[in-house]
Amino acid sequence: MKWSELCIQTTNEAVEPISHILHESGASGLVIEDPLDLKKERESTFGEIFELNPADYPEEGVYVKAYLPMNDVFEETVEKIKGKVSYLPNYEINIGKNYVTLTEIDEEDWATAWKKYYKPVKISENVTIVPTWEDYEPSADEIIIELDPGMAFGTGTHPTTILSIQALEQYLAQEDVVIDVGSGSGVLSIASALLGAKYVYAYDLDDVAVNSTRINAELNHLKDKIEAKQNNLLEHVAIKANVIVSNILAEIIVKFVADAWNNLEDNGLFITSGIIQDKKQFVIDELKQQGFTILEINEMEDWISIVAKKA
């Protein structure tokens, strides 16, 4: 079978919604090429080693690449993707140049092409994300999250995910009950369980994400601690949690602030990420209006994470 690499030149702001569109459309092996990666002094943080080729990166914006099978519905799928991406400005999401290119790839090349981008990455003092095909020897106190990024939503090393896991690492208490809203690959659910959560309820509207959360939970031997279900945000959820974590767009977060309040125990925490600088105050105002106390605001590469408490 032939495969096609679909490349969209867009903005950092649009990476997550476009990634979601691509996965909903059946794409595999998502790759994000951000020229800012070339300028990072990563080795000074946790000691990772990266080999990046500047020729692979755009001079402006970000490349989002995915792989589609060239079957009978290929052309129709590409047109639907283009249409959905072009509609994002209606949600006040800047999609930048929105240049789309297609490159045909043989199956044997596709099978390994996207994997070269994914290596073990230490994202905090104690947590390292390791692709399932990589051999990695952890240190004594290291927490390992095994992830198959070909299943859904990338490797878990986007700044918004890193901010979320760092917040969980700081605030999650042993035996806490956690709700993960918009679970994607399940990386935050897995991190919560490995950091000591008693039980995690993972919800996503996309059944591809729900399945990926289940598969990745099993890869990490956590299927007995993580329950993944298809659901629209927190609609009809009656569970009381100590922590709710959600790494999705600001526009979506504000839609369920009241539900998050209702689903949290007293003194419970609402950890949100996926927020761009321009939308920070928008989310803060909504949280405060509901009654939340803002405990902490963290930033990484123009992305924001907020930790709020039901006081």
Rank of each mutant, 00 (worst) to 15 (best):
W3I: 15
E5Y: 05
I8N: 06
N12C: 12
A14R: 14
A14Q: 09
I21T: 06
L22G: 00
L22W: 02
A27H: 04
L30I: 15
V31N: 06
I32L: 07
P35A: 02
E43D: 06
G47W: 13
E48C: 09
E48D: 10
E51Q: 05
L52Q: 02
V62D: 04
V64A: 09
L68V: 09
M70D: 08
N71Y: 04
F74N: 00
K84F: 10
K84C: 06
K84N: 15
S86H: 09
L88H: 10
L88V: 01
N90C: 03
N90D: 02
G96W: 09
K97I: 08
N98I: 14
T101H: 01
T101L: 07
E104T: 15
D106I: 06
D106V: 14
A111L: 14
T112P: 02
W114L: 02
K116W: 12
K122L: 07
T128H: 11
P131K: 07
P131G: 07
D135R: 15
I143Q: 05
D148R: 00
G150T: 09
M151N: 12
T161G: 08
A167W: 06
A167T: 08
L168F: 07
E169Q: 09
Q170D: 04
Y171L: 00
L172Q: 05
V178L: 00
D180F: 10
S183W: 00
G184Y: 04
G184R: 11
A191K: 03
L194E: 11
L194A: 11
L195W: 01
L195F: 01
G196V: 03
K198A: 14
Y203H: 14
D204C: 08
A209G: 07
L219T: 11
N220L: 13
L222A: 12
A228W: 05
N232I: 13
N232F: 03
A241K: 00
N242V: 05
V243P: 01
V243D: 11
V245Y: 06
E251V: 08
I253W: 02
A258Q: 15
A260E: 06
E265D: 08
N267I: 02
N267E: 13
I271S: 02
S273Q: 06
G274C: 07
K279E: 13
D285T: 03
F292R: 04
I294N: 11
L295A: 07
E296R: 10
M300F: 12
W303G: 04
I306H: 08
K309R: 15
